[in-house]
Simulated scan of single mutants.
Amino acid sequence: MKSAHLEKLLLCDVLENIADTLPNVDCLTCLNTANVIVPLLRNTHQYEETVIFPTYEAASTGNASPASTRRLRAEHVEDECFAGEVTEILLAIGHGKKIENAEAIGFMLRGFFESLRRHIAFEREHVLPVIGIVDVD
C-alpha cells in the first residue's frame, strides 16, 4: 500500500510540474505520463478494493468503516473517469496539439492531482492505522 501511495504521489508531482510549466511543456513527459495514469489507478484501486478495504472493514469497530469504504470506492470511480480526461489532454499535447487554454488545462490537472493527494491522505490517516500499517512518509 505504501508503494502504491508513493507511485501515485510521484504521478501527482509530475502532473504538478506539467501544470506549472504550461504552455511550455515537454511533449515526451506528457506522453509518458498519459500512458501510466489509467493503469496505475486501476491496479491500485483493484488492490485497495479487494485487499485493503475488506481488511479495514474487518478490523474496524463501529459503523463508520462501511460508509468510509463506500465513499472511497466512489472516489475511485470518479478518479478513473477524470484520469481518462487527463490522459486524453496529455496525449494530445504530447502529440503536438497546440495548447489554446493553458490556464484551463492547468486547472484540470490541479483538480485531478489534488483529489488524488486528498484520497491518499485520508487512507494514510484513517485506513492504514486501523489495519496495522504505520505510514511515516
Rank of each mutant, 00 (worst) to 15 (best):
residue 122 F to W: 10
residue 92 A to G: 08
residue 29 T to Q: 07
residue 45 H to V: 03
residue 24 N to I: 11
residue 87 T to C: 05
residue 37 I to L: 07
residue 104 A to D: 13
residue 8 K to S: 11
residue 77 V to P: 03
residue 1 M to S: 13
residue 82 F to A: 14
residue 126 H to L: 05
residue 37 I to P: 01
residue 88 E to A: 15
residue 133 I to Q: 02
residue 38 V to Y: 07
residue 41 L to I: 08
residue 73 R to M: 09
residue 58 A to P: 04
residue 63 N to F: 04
residue 28 L to N: 04
residue 10 L to N: 04
residue 35 N to H: 13
residue 84 G to A: 11
residue 8 K to V: 13
residue 107 F to W: 04
residue 81 C to N: 05
residue 111 G to I: 04
residue 15 L to Q: 08
residue 65 S to E: 13
residue 55 T to F: 08
residue 105 I to M: 08
residue 112 F to H: 02
residue 19 A to L: 09
residue 132 G to K: 02
residue 28 L to D: 08
residue 61 T to D: 13
residue 9 L to C: 00
residue 67 A to H: 07
residue 134 V to W: 01
residue 99 I to S: 01
residue 79 D to C: 01
residue 80 E to D: 02
residue 4 A to S: 15
residue 132 G to N: 02
residue 9 L to P: 00
residue 118 R to H: 04
residue 100 E to L: 13
residue 119 H to S: 10
residue 15 L to H: 03
residue 21 T to C: 04
residue 112 F to V: 00
residue 53 F to M: 02
residue 17 N to M: 10
residue 93 I to N: 02
residue 5 H to K: 11
residue 113 F to C: 06
residue 17 N to K: 09
residue 30 C to K: 00
residue 69 T to Y: 07
residue 21 T to A: 05
residue 97 K to A: 13
residue 84 G to D: 00
residue 130 V to R: 00
residue 13 D to F: 01
residue 29 T to I: 08
residue 81 C to H: 03
residue 70 R to N: 14
